[in-house]
Design a protein around this nucleic acid. Sequence first.
DNA 1: GGCGTCGTAACAAATACGGTTACGACCAGA
DNA 2: TCTGGTCGTAACCGTATTTGTTACGACGCC
Lengths: 143, 143
Amino acid sequence: MSANSRLTIAAHALTWIGLYQRRGHEVATSEQIATSVNTNPVVIRRLLAQLSKAGLADSRRGAGAGWMLARDLSAITLLDVYEAVEPGPVFALHRATPDPECVVGRGIGPALTAVYDGVEAALRRELAGATLEDVLRDILKAA
Amino acid sequence: MSANSRLTIAAHALTWIGLYQRRGHEVATSEQIATSVNTNPVVIRRLLAQLSKAGLADSRRGAGAGWMLARDLSAITLLDVYEAVEPGPVFALHRATPDPECVVGRGIGPALTAVYDGVEAALRRELAGATLEDVLRDILKAA
DNA sequence: GGCGTCGTAACAAATACGGTTACGACCAGA
DNA sequence: TCTGGTCGTAACCGTATTTGTTACGACGCC
């Protein structure tokens, strides 16, 4: 699978902001977050821009600028983050449409779509069951 | 998501072989299957080679060569096919290891892994619930 | 007005995926 | 024994995706 790390990085960034704010700070800069994630600040800004569109984060510009949560960590599930940063489905159908002269070629798409829809639903249920608050609790417990 | 179509193509190929055999033929060639899938025979041979290693299909060489199922369609689940053709997990962790000086950087990996494991388990349960026999039944019902 | 940060475009490197060509291995049948 | 059809696999290409990087204008507090 061509698995990417966007969900991981986005969850990391939001959790980091949440903890930082709980420690009394107003906003977090993309540079600070990038240091914890160990990547480039632009990567963080790109992801946070998507999370901002989804209503999970907000930014402040000008001097003393940075990022803050739009909702509390307990009100953000991993499903919210997933939907904000992952556009497509988990499984793809055929790249080129199969032979329409063939029974299997005609019917396999709809048949698999039914199963794939169930898979996506199950995946979403799992992700919806974990909030970033849960994730942060896990982190602090292990520390 | 960088979703690929290997599960779809592999399920298509096996289902096609199954139906072909039920119609009285001994073996199916990669060329016949490729026609139904609308791709190159080598793509089919590559996938069937993996399915053969996983014990789902068998090949016969020489003249009158081709492919046959190693088990009945009713004894092959989509999970079997998935495990045969998809090596990696659905979600990836960080590409570069996060800052070990940071609480979040240290703990986010294990915390997310726990959730991701649950997601993979749910995904597998769903795929295990559908056999290729089910898929073929769907196809023939819709035809 | 200056400084620090966001927002975003542009580009590069690495990887993944699917398609294609090529060719030796293999084996039933003539 | 030869022949023809198919497998098995390597090699390569084009495209797309992902991530990292540089660059620069926009913005707003001091």
